[in-house]
Amino acid sequence: MSQRPGITLGETRSGFVGRLRTTLARRTEGRALALFFVVATVTWIMEPIVFTSYQVTLGRIALIGLVALGLTAVILMGELDLAVASTLAVAGVVMASIDNLALGIIAALLTGLLIGVVNAFFVVVVGINSFIATLGMLFFLRGAAFVISGEEPVRLANIDAGIAFGKPFIGDLTPRVLLFIVAFIAIQLFVTRVRVGREFYAVGGNREAAYDAGIPVRRRIFTGFMISGFVAALAGVINTLERTAADPTAGSTVLLASFAAAIIGGILLTGGRGSVFGTLLGATSLGILQVALTLSGVQVDVQNIIIGLVLLLAVISDPTTLRVVLGNARAFIQGRSEIQPEG
């Protein structure tokens, strides 16, 4: 494999600075890093308590980030899983409806996997766009959560387990934060070190080419949706344990925050580009922002406005398409047809 004359991957530059620039140009976390620094600096000056009581902040980051990590796996392949919010609610309700705690957790996680399989079935076998398929599932599962729970929050039978779950486990870290760290490391290793995970990038980058290269595209998409379903169900289990009850309406703000985290993290919605680390940065920034706003006494409604604005800005400010977009904007204002190819 050493003899590959004439093949260079990307731009080659000489010298350390050149190599650094090439590396930086390949990274996708720029916006997340910028947002992180702005949010962290402003918070440091205005509300330093966000950092001194870091357990609260870490808990919030884990809440936002866990679902976003699962989403990352799906979005890398250019698909989307809008059903995660409802999966979270359904998994929580399923878990609380079963009296035995261990059985309940297993049933909830299996529910998440099953939902992933159903989503992937509609996307891969039936051939529906994943936006619409998972949107239908979002509504269906939200209804299912209401039906299973009888339209009321379900109390967890084993309340002691829930209380123990909220306490620090190792050092200052609660089990929720530890599970989030484990999930982050697992998914990070999966998409960067494991062959199946690395192929997610290929599937998202160019599906035809991936198929021609012998990658089982359909199976990879099934895997991706199962990951996101499983992780969303895990988030539902954690929520239910912490609150000692399952709420069928849970997860509506999770949808917004987790998408915001993944998209700010630099992941391209059409697939093939982005990193799990970026999602972590995005989730961290949003977590700090939310805790800071809450501590400053800002209402939930205003927090939703701010996070909605961040998501809107993130989704329209993709650096690779920005040049094309500026051309489009000029054409739009001048009333001409767009001249540049679409991103």
């Binding site: 989307l80 809008l82 936006f131 949107l135 949808l255 917004l256 998408f259 915001a260 998209i263 919605l269 209402q299 409604d301 205003v302 927090q303 939703n304 406005i305 996070i307 909605g308 604005l309 998501l311 809107l312 989704v315 329209i316 400010s317 398409t321 094309v324 977009v325 489009n328 904007a329 739009f332 679409e342 991103g343």
Partner: peptide
């Protein structure tokens, strides 16, 4: 103009709009 995904855009404007209205 920005070629952003309609589902994500309208999801965020939903939260912005409802947030402003409730506020």
């Amino acid at each position: 103009v920005f070629k952003a995904n309609a589902v994500i855009v309208t999801l965020s404007t939903t939260f912005i709009g409802l947030g402003i209205l409730r506020w």
